[in-house]
């Protein structure tokens, strides 16, 4: 069983790296790109099923910082 955890900045937290990427994308000629936000993901392989609650716990306590980040768990 593999779960994928996506972690991204909460809306409203300025991410200068994404801003810089967006500016470069615009300069490449993609003037229709209005916003870019980046995040990261973790693939977590488990030996048993039905452990969604463990994954939630790991995501909340370690992989993300609730002050600045949201996370989302997806089954792969």
């Amino acid at each position: 069983m593999i779960y994928r955890v996506y972690v991204e900045f909460k809306p409203g937290i300025l991410d200068p790296e994404s801003e810089a990427i967006k500016r470069t994308v615009n300069q490449l000629g993609f003037s229709n790109v209005e916003n870019i936000s980046k995040g990261k993901f973790f693939d977590i392989e488990l030996s048993s099923n039905n452990c969604l609650s463990d994954i939630e716990k790991i995501s909340k306590e370690l992989l993300s910082n609730p002050v600045i980040e949201n996370f989302k768990v997806v089954k792969k």
């Binding site: 200068p16 790296e17 002050v67």
Partner: peptide, 15 residues
């Protein structure tokens, strides 16, 4: 990070 203090410390504006 261990929540003894409020807030978070993130990347400097200058990166």
């Amino acid at each position: 990070e261990c929540k003894l203090l409020e807030g978070a410390l993130i990347k400097n504006s200058s990166q």
